[in-house]
């Protein structure tokens, strides 16, 4: 209820009721907008953005089956941002497996190694012939963050010493001719934090290593200045970036399976429309009520 100029109580109109809408109705409408498009697929179009295309090209140019070239993917995140970043890791691994590009996974965070293992298992479902230790590898977790990045520039095998299961790296032929960043044409950092800054500062600035990143939506806008300056060579921004990469893989016939990020784009788009509608309605409601007062 609002009071008019004569102090007589006035019944709430539509806009007043809307401004006091119980938040549970908003949650419920978001829930419907997510569930229905998952049950009834609409396959709304997704367009590829330049940062995703750049990252795809960087990976695609790595010589396949070359013992002196390896892509490194750093899974620098924990399960809280897994929905956005895990599809990126899986898509990147599929790209490497399909093109027979040698790839190693690592992590600067404690939880990242387990997620890297999950991503490789998921990617292997489509490429069951890839062999651990020959086509891909997961490095052991090493404490030290920036020190790890700097030491990799001197000697990768000495930095990690073992794989994630504790086996010595000497047992794996994939790293026989990998010494430092000179044999790593690109490194992709998947992160939901400021880890990408460490990679830029210590690997790109110090060793001129090509750094790409897969990043959560929340910090994706922060990446654009680094992209513009060329310090980051490609970016996957949030779930949309992951979906774009999955579509590029399908377009180029490197993967037949529809990725989880692509499936998620229908509910994502519908919910964005709903949020826009909420913002417009809330603003109209605000101005109408302000005028009445």
């Amino acid at each position: 209820m609002i009071e008019n100029k004569t102090n007589k109580p006035q019944r709430d109109g539509f806009w007043e009721k809307l401004s006091k809408l119980n938040r549970r109705y908003i949650y419920m409408s978001v829930g419907i907008c997510v569930i229905v498009p998952l049950l009834i697929r609409m396959r709304l179009p997704i367009f590829i953005t330049p940062p995703t295309k750049s990252l795809y090209n960087v990976v695609d140019k790595i010589p396949p089956e070359d013992p002196e070239n390896m892509l490194i993917i750093s899974f620098d995140y924990d399960p809280s941002v897994m929905p956005e970043l895990q599809p990126m890791g899986v898509a990147l691994l599929k790209h490497c497996f399909a093109k027979k590009i040698r790839v190693a996974c690592m992590s600067l965070t404690v939880m990242g190694i387990g997620l890297a293992e999950m991503a490789t298992e998921k990617a292997k479902e489509e490429f069951p012939d890839v062999k651990y230790g020959e086509d891909y590898l997961i490095f052991a977790w090493v404490p030290g963050w920036s020190i790890v990045i700097l030491k990799m520039g001197e000697n990768i095998k000495e930095t990690f010493m073992a794989d994630y299961a504790g086996k010595s790296l000497d047992e794996f032929p994939i790293v026989d001719k990998i010494h430092n960043y000179e044999q790593v044409p690109a490194l992709v950092c998947l992160t939901g934090s400021s880890t990408y800054l460490s990679w830029i500062t210590y690997a790109n600035t110090r060793y001129n290593e090509t750094i790409c990143t897969g990043i959560t939506g929340v910090i994706a806008p922060e990446i654009y200045p680094w992209l513009q300056s060329g310090q980051i060579s490609g970016m996957l921004g949030g779930i949309k970036g992951a979906a774009e990469y999955e579509i590029l893989l399908k377009k180029n016939k490197l993967s037949k399976v529809e990725g989880t990020a692509s499936v998620a784009m229908d509910p994502q788009s519908i919910t964005h429309l709903l949020i826009m509608l909420f913002i417009v309605l809330a603003n109209i409601s605000y101005f109408v009520i302000r005028r009445k007062k």
């Binding site: 978001v30 829930g31 997510v34 569930i35 998952l38 049950l39 941002v81 897994m82 929905p83 956005e84 959560t216 939506g217 929340v218 994706a220 806008p221 921004g237 949030g238 779930i239 949309k240 989880t260 499936v263 998620a264 509910p267 994502q268 919910t271 964005h272 949020i275």
Partner: peptide, 30 residues
């Protein structure tokens, strides 16, 4: 505005992923 837009996308993505898990892995509907 750009940061808010990306944040909305990120938060919805987390929810979509959980719903995908419930409908696909748990209930097997999709």
């Amino acid at each position: 505005g750009a940061i808010f837009g990306y944040t909305v996308m990120a938060r919805i993505a987390l929810f979509v992923s959980r719903v995908q898990f419930l409908l696909h892995d748990w209930l097997g509907i999709i």
